[in-house]
């Protein structure tokens, strides 16, 4: 954290904001505020340069064409890659997750070049994966079982430099029994819901990465009930 507040950069809501992605921003702001940590959020339109001094960068979901446009503009801009090099946190969902990789499938399945910030490649699958998803998170991240909703047609293959974020317990995820990927502080997932609403532990992981210390517990009763209800709905 470069100053006394967390700077959150919401990347391109004009292109990548399809599944309540704003919710992830709201939850980070709120969970920081409840701990007395001020935040500043920038909603960055795709015609603006990506600021280098963000602490947390958020990317959301989008349709095929906006996803391709976002990838082109982010590659041309280069700011996100520089921020990652200097240790910023990136949390990307669905279309945003795919475009962090080396390439992804376009409208007709054609390969489109991504940002190469995660060692993943995505292609178009045969079937659309739509529904609740549950996964057990990689042990080193210390985040409880995750719950979300997925809606995508992507199949994502991880290279040797990316680790799977979670093992799928219910749902499809990457298509190989795992869900999402991360390397360092760059984390991508197919879960919306939005993911940080349903998984306060994951929201706190991002905040911990940003502030570099442990955070005091806060009242999570509604988020907790929501988590429990969603997990019960799927797992019985």
């Amino acid at each position: 954290m470069s100053s006394d507040r967390i700077k959150i950069v919401w990347i391109y809501p004009d292109l990548l904001s399809t599944y309540g992605d704003q919710g992830n921003t709201i939850v980070l702001e709120r969970r920081a505020a409840l701990r007395g940590i001020p935040t500043q959020t920038v909603s960055l339109r795709s015609d603006e340069p990506v600021p280098a001094d963000g602490d947390i960068y958020l990317l959301g979901g989008g349709e095929d064409r906006p996803q391709i446009l976002a990838a082109q503009r982010l590659r041309g801009d280069g700011g996100l890659a520089r921020a990652v090099q200097s240790g910023a946190v990136v949390f990307a969902v669905c279309a945003g997750y795919q475009l962090l990789g080396h390439e992804f499938g376009g409208e007709e399945g054609q390969p489109v070049q991504g940002l190469g910030l995660l060692d993943i490649r995505s292609t178009r699958g045969e079937q659309r994966a739509v529904g609740e998803i549950v996964g057990d998170v990689a042990a080193e991240l210390n985040v409880p079982r995750i719950t979300g909703f997925e809606n995508h047609q992507g199949v994502t293959h991880l290279g040797p430099n990316a680790r799977p974020f979670a093992q799928v317990v219910h749902g499809v995820g990457n298509g190989d029994g795992f869900e999402g990927a991360y390397r360092g502080r760059v984390l991508g997932t197919y879960m919306h819901g939005p993911a940080l609403v349903r998984n306060p532990g994951l929201a706190d992981l991002l905040l911990r990465w940003a502030v570099g210390r442990d955070l005091q517990p806060i009242d999570d009763s509604w988020a907790g009930r929501l988590r429990e209800e969603r997990l019960n709905a799927v797992m019985g």
Partner: peptide
Amino acid sequence: GRDTSWLWD
């Protein structure tokens, strides 16, 4: 729609 994420919009 079985997905409630739109509530956040």
